[in-house]
Write a protein that binds this DNA or RNA. Sequence first.
DNA 1: CTCGGGATGCGT
DNA 2: CGCATCCCGAGG
Length: 182
Amino acid sequence: MGKLDREFYNRDTMTVARELLGKYLVHAGKGCRRAGRIVEVEAYLGQHDKASHSSRGRTARNLPMFGPPGMAYVYLIYGMYYCMNVVTEPEGNASAVLLRALEPLEGITGRTQGPGLLCRAMDIDKRLNGCDLLGDELYITDAVPSNFRIVRRPRIGVDYAGAWAKRHLRFYIAGNAYVSRK
DNA sequence: CTCGGGATGCGT
DNA sequence: CGCATCCCGAGG
């Protein structure tokens, strides 16, 4: 299974989000390897998206979002969990896809239903912020083809974002047991 | 510098 | 619904 290349990420964010479903997220750490199948994601559509961290312009935290596609944007939330995004679209568009849930494949002990648990189970934290997903530590690979239906729903936890909160930018694999908040 | 709140998850 | 727990980002 090949690693996804730069051009995969350098596309329309909703397309990347949908196509990430079913792919494999791999964290090859020191001596241990963790992997899971991506089953739930959310799209964040650039600076005009009021729910996006990039909506108030470039800041210290969201810097990776403004960089080239194919990089990881990892941030701390509520003082105790990390969330991982993959940066999409050409540099400067400040768009990304949040990885919300995985189906465990390899080396995973904890739960993976939800962005915070996903990062904990995959041992993903601030150290991996800005990491290139075309490198050898953290990356996403193609998967064996499988048929599934994709469900679209409003994103979780962004009620403050007005009209943007209503848009169906959360995507998940229909019927999958590892999807959060079904 | 202070201060309010957050792309969460868990227990009540 | 409350809360843990801490960093970010806005404002003075």
